[in-house]
Design a protein around this nucleic acid. Sequence first.
DNA 1: TGCACTTTGGCAACAGCGTTGCGAAAGTGG
DNA 2: CCACTTTCGCAACGCTGTTGCCAAAGTGCA
Lengths: 388, 388
Amino acid sequence: MSSDHDLDRPDIGARPDGAAAPGANLLALRGHNAALLLGLLRAAGEEGASRLELAERTGLTPQAVSKITARLRADGLVVEAGRRASTGGKPRTVLRLVPGARHAVGVHLDRDEIVCVLADLTGRPTAVRRAPLDFGAGAEAVLATTAGEVAALREAAGGPPVLGAGVACPGPLDHATGVLRQVTGAPQWDGFPLREALAARLGLPVVVDKDTNAAALGLSRASEEVGGASFAYLHLGTGLGAGLVLGGSLYRGPHTGAGEFGHQVLQLDGPRCDCGRRGCVEALCLAAVARGDLPAAARVLGVAAANLVELLDIDRVLLGGRTVLAHPEVFRDGVARELADHAALRGRPPAPGSDPGAAPAVPVARARGGARTVADGAAELVLTGLFR
Amino acid sequence: MSSDHDLDRPDIGARPDGAAAPGANLLALRGHNAALLLGLLRAAGEEGASRLELAERTGLTPQAVSKITARLRADGLVVEAGRRASTGGKPRTVLRLVPGARHAVGVHLDRDEIVCVLADLTGRPTAVRRAPLDFGAGAEAVLATTAGEVAALREAAGGPPVLGAGVACPGPLDHATGVLRQVTGAPQWDGFPLREALAARLGLPVVVDKDTNAAALGLSRASEEVGGASFAYLHLGTGLGAGLVLGGSLYRGPHTGAGEFGHQVLQLDGPRCDCGRRGCVEALCLAAVARGDLPAAARVLGVAAANLVELLDIDRVLLGGRTVLAHPEVFRDGVARELADHAALRGRPPAPGSDPGAAPAVPVARARGGARTVADGAAELVLTGLFR
DNA sequence: TGCACTTTGGCAACAGCGTTGCGAAAGTGG
DNA sequence: CCACTTTCGCAACGCTGTTGCCAAAGTGCA
């Protein structure tokens, strides 16, 4: 029933040797096109898409789409679901993704809690577990808890096929190798090969990433309209961080260091920050929060967000984190005001005939999903490998 | 002598319809692998690379490499050049890129001057022409001058095969469509389809980009060591701009707006900038230059550069532009100092056993190449399409 | 000098990709 | 009921990288 291709073992995680081996053979070609069609079908959602629509949007011939979707149907990932209205000939058959055909585990390792989700192919969680966790208690305890939670989650869901596990943690780490670095307040994790250790423990492929990155990826997916857009998620909790989705995929930088947003200097010779520098956004923002001046905090965040938008041509901003979610409107409105001012100045006289993409202000909203945002995004780290 | 594939007509420039059609067929596969091998051979330079080395680095089988390089040799792009020392068996045959097999035109349309280069496949210019130009004089005059200069350049070089022309201009534009937007001080260019117009005039495929982007791409290539690195070029002349090369390729953002570096706010409620905001780097930096305080200007630039490095995990920074080149050491040292401070604070105690990639300061240097930097980079806009 | 061994790299057959040509299936409209 | 349109699968095909095999071209020891 299941044909022989490798959809059940997607190429999760970057190569540890660092050196890319991007030579493409026929298998890679097949995988690429299959992922492409799956991506379009996922974006099409309930409505589905016909073979000819897929052919137009990919540039593949209709016959190629037929062959590829036949394989996907044989694997149970896609089904025929109804037909469109006829336009004078045979009506188009609608193809739809089967959300439950595969699942991915998402794990959020927070400092005091572990959240695990089992997400279907659309990214929607079908099962959730939460448990207290002492991230500082050391590797063995955390690994054991994680393995137990994931096993319980899979069992409770009836043991559906699982592609892999995405794991999001705080602090710096190397995504390519899955090795943690100097985690603030938990020095014993420094240099720990979390990816390998968890992969062995869970018996699943594992991807590791920063919590803000996972959140950004998940939120980018959830509010997606057009592919290839650029998007920023700003997280203001006990600290300030960001996740960047550029050109449709997470931008991590060569050492998984991208997105360090909190220590952008926004005020030369400003107040000293814990990091040693002066005038960091995080320091300014949290100081304003501490003295109860939320509008000021929102304004500071807004100016920093406008810098980001200006520098990276960002299309959409989402805000999250405990501090923001405690007063979501204040922050949303404050940031929106700064972005509107920025857009007004940037677009000078909004040229009438020209591309209107540059003139309007970049939209801001609070992140939906609440406490599960990071875990959902962690699952998305795995699912991303299946789609394109 | 020339086989039938499309190396002479690479897919230059993005699709105008915006929607990607990324379906891959066998032709795309062939092109990908050929570009990959050409890229490795270009990086190998004079030393060349053997078939087996190429196979190891791409993940392709040796036989596939043999077939692909045979096609490249038939096209004259690659030659056999000597052999390596034997290691107990038949010695490896060395393959080398033939720099002069194809050329690319690079055009820098500046406000008062046009610079044209003819670059070989390594990016090295083999011919240069410069002429005065009034960019504000309108499209027809500029097109005529450009066409004349390019024709003269090609003729003077003996009419070698030319892949296309890269054109770099000031001001905002849309790379995907090749349409200019509101150019400061030259409103008549707004909405002008420069790419189409020039392509028709020159009879060549044309790519259009911002001058800072072209410069960044060219400089990134010239000082390249490892692929996939991230790199920033900061240009301080009459204004302040940047070009970003992320993951080995130019990052333009969805609307070719990325790299707007000058109006990053660096001082909340600072002095007013021409753009309407307060405390922009450009305003701060140029004010310091105007009052003769170059170290202060360099420091401001350095803080902004550190922000960039922090946010995007940048590996290397190059400085250019008239103001910088007038006092290169002052700016280099000032920026280097800020980046060193930043690295010292970021890397906290540089962990002994861990990846040393995070600890050392990001290197800064002045851009080499002088007045030809942008034109060289413009040629690279075309060449990039051939390599991977 | 001869011969065994190692290593490179081409020839030929092959599996599998998307493409092309064509016809069956399944509608609309007069 | 029939002509027409449109969708979509079957079969043959060209071309990709892969595999099996062997010739070429060295080294190193007898």
